[in-house]
Design a protein around this nucleic acid. Structure first.
Lengths: 247, 247
DNA sequence: GCGTTGGCTTGATCCATGTCAACCGGAACT
DNA sequence: AGTTCCGGTTGACATGGATCAAGCCAACGC
């Protein structure tokens, strides 16, 4: 299958490079805040674009690390495995987000990244990113912010896992998804889940039955309408209230 | 108040700089892998050393961020608060570890850092660290590794909170502490906890009673000897076995 | 020496979530 | 159209850890 990315514009005189400068996610992604000239230098190092089919691994725990990955389109999950077989989903990533930051530490990936739908990623060789960010202050700073944001996000998940009850966790999860879809120009109130109940449960530290029951409960209360993976949020404030409720 | 840092050595001919180059934690901390000349340049930007008394805040959630902090001596916890009053300890930090990385993202701290014993920290102005790491490749790379390590650590905590049961969590916690004390040249088998049962519980997503019961259980089983905050590990393998036990 | 305080331990009971099991419904294949 | 399979839903029951409550111990002040 050839390139099926809808460009939403006529291709006229210039050759369109498959790179940051013509990516509509650039303000969500690594190039945030760069000048045109800087953007072109970043383009130079993002040579590889790769398609990952639904269910395939982008990388696996234990593999040598050499690149981080920006999601151009699609949806991923990352998970870690314990020796005894237990595993936990550590995150769901969507377009414009970076994957692979965990690998910098030991130069080996420490988790698996798996596409939840057919996806496209840009591979960014990490040593070249470091070189370039020594020259482009904005790039350096923004990259630091992205890593820091990941740490803050993880703290949020720790909070969720450590102190919230099942329904609060699911409400927080839905609100978070909604907010991230909004940031990408999609509806904040209606979306398709790319992951199964089991994957949601793994992320939230719950069993799939508990997730399912919580969905049903939310539906009974009129907060959402669920039909399998199709979610419509009917009462955002109801969901928010659920979270701040108990002391 | 003038400089009150006890130098613990005679000052003879050379002036002793209160900086990385004469800090015995440097191989655990930011200066890892730097040459002597590079070390001196790092020294230049670590001008402020500060004492934090037990119970005092190094920083609070919401405060403007401008520095990260290296712990020279002592012991800290970080915690996040929810609006409704619930809070969660997100980590315990000891000498050689960095605090404040969460603040880079929004330029405001997102958690509280509180000293659990009288401590001493080195403040590292972040914009100057970025400048210097644009010039010193080793510093840049090591800093990235430290941030990435924090992300990996957080994934470990997520795993712990999401999939482990109470006794596994506590065993993992003790083994982790033991390993970090060892890395600092202390006994791996005997140490004092700096935090209360409640703080341990908050970190592990458990109530203090559950933590207490698990300690008692471990003692009955002969894995450890507990007397209040004094812990002796009698059977490391017993603790390790506890963790990998169930599928 | 004695009371007070804060942190810790232990017991009894409760409840949220896990576990086990049955069933449902849509998608893919024959 | 029928079969299989996978993911989801729902119910009945079990249980790990929370909750509530009492008491203990060590440090500290008077």
């Amino acid at each position: 299958m050839p390139n099926t990315i809808p460009l939403n514009q006529e291709i006229t005189l210039t050759v369109i490079k498959t790179a940051c400068s013509n990516c509509n996610l650039r303000e969500l992604c690594l190039p945030f805040g760069l000048s045109l000239e800087e953007l072109e230098r970043l383009d130079d190092l993002i040579s590889t674009r790769r398609r990952i089919k639904r269910g395939d691994h982008l990388y696996r725990a234990g593999e040598a690390f050499d690149s981080i990955y920006a999601i151009r389109s699609g949806f991923f999950k990352t998970d870690v495995l314990l020796e005894d077989g237990r595993d936990q989903v550590t995150g769901f990533q969507m377009a414009g987000e970076l994957l692979g930051l965990d690998g910098i530490s030991t130069e080996h990936h420490t988790c698996n990244a798996i596409a939840l739908e057919d996806s496209e990623i840009c591979a960014i060789p990490f040593n070249r990113l470091e070189s370039l960010s020594r020259e482009i202050h904005n790039l350096q700073h923004h990259f630091h912010k992205v890593m820091s944001r990941e740490i803050v996000r993880d703290h949020g998940v720790m909070m969720l896992l450590g102190t919230m009850r099942a329904e609060e966790r699911l409400a927080a999860f839905l609100l978070n998804l909604s907010q991230r879809f909004t940031a990408r120009g999609f509806s904040h109130a209606e979306f398709y889940l790319r992951m199964t109940r089991e994957e949601i449960g793994s992320y939230l530290g719950l069993k799939l039955e508990t997730v399912s029951r919580a969905f049903s409960k939310f539906q009974e209360e009129g907060y959402i309408a669920v039909q399998q993976k199709h979610i419509r949020i009917l009462n955002v404030n109801g969901l928010k209230a659920l979270m701040n409720h108990r002391a």
